Amino acid sequence: MRKTLVLASLLWLAGAAWAGGAELYAQNCASCHGPGGEGVAGVFPPLAGNPRAADAAYVARVVRNGLSGPLTVGDRTFNGSMPPFAQLSDADVEALAGYVAGRLAAGAAPAAGPGTTAAAAAGDPEAGRAYFLGKRRFARGATPCVACHDAPGTGALGGGTLGPDLSDAGTRFGAGLAQLLERPGFKVMRSLYGDRPLTPEEARDVAAFLASGSGAPAPAARGWRFAGLGALGTLLLFLVLFPFWPRQRESYRDRLLRRKA
């Protein structure tokens, strides 16, 4: 009887730890690695079916210290960046690592079929450009991308500089770009879009717009843009004022004599 109670207590504690780990995973990891550990193609590796993720000690080290650079899982290479989660306590890290190693890593690895690529290709680049520039509002009220990012096709003034230039986003993230836009894994983007995420259709449209500009020359530096616009404005002002310039050189006495004549 005592052994049964001890075993039941251990099972209950393991279940409670996994439940806490599942909540921590949903709060800190699911936006990048997916709710089921499926990952994002080319950017964030899958945890389901990943032998590394089955090692709880390895998972705990990555959560504490972060990880960046090329990483190969199976026959696929990922080149994302994961920051250290210093805000998590040791108990949280252990619970999270236990959940990943005990639940997610044991799942089947997602199939690397053409479905994601086809979904990304289904987006409308023109609609995506309108969303990017804020000419069309996102359904859930998300901030237009141009407020923080620049990309080919944003016009003479370009976009913001808070975030990186997205000229090569289509090449860098490939078919996973739409999924990354729908579930952003970067800290600033999570704070902006966490409660106002893009719909799957909006994410595909913006991804199609960014993919259509990949390979194009990066937009000119903001300083050169404003310098060019300033020179153009000066030229237009000179052309407008030029007909009146001779009168500015005429003295007051000459004007009086001209009026009396």
Rank of each mutant, 00 (worst) to 15 (best):
G213C: 10
R103N: 06
A122Y: 08
G128V: 01
L104K: 04
R222V: 10
A175N: 07
A106Q: 15
E202C: 07
F138R: 12
L229C: 03
L162E: 04
P152T: 13
R136S: 13
S214K: 07
A118P: 03
R136C: 04
G153M: 13
A119Q: 11
A178P: 13
T143S: 08
T143M: 15
R204E: 12
L133N: 05
L180N: 02
L104Y: 00
L180R: 02
A101S: 15
G115D: 14
G113F: 03
T143V: 14
A216V: 03
D195E: 14
A139M: 01
V206L: 15
A218R: 14
A211D: 07
P219H: 07
A121C: 08
F138Q: 12
R103Q: 09
G115E: 15
P144R: 03
R225M: 04
W224S: 07
A218C: 03
R136W: 05
G174R: 10
G215I: 04
L166K: 01
A105V: 01
T143Q: 08
A109Y: 05
A109F: 03
R196E: 11
F209T: 14
P219C: 12
A101L: 11
P219F: 06
P114T: 13
A169C: 01
G230D: 12
S167D: 06
F209Y: 13
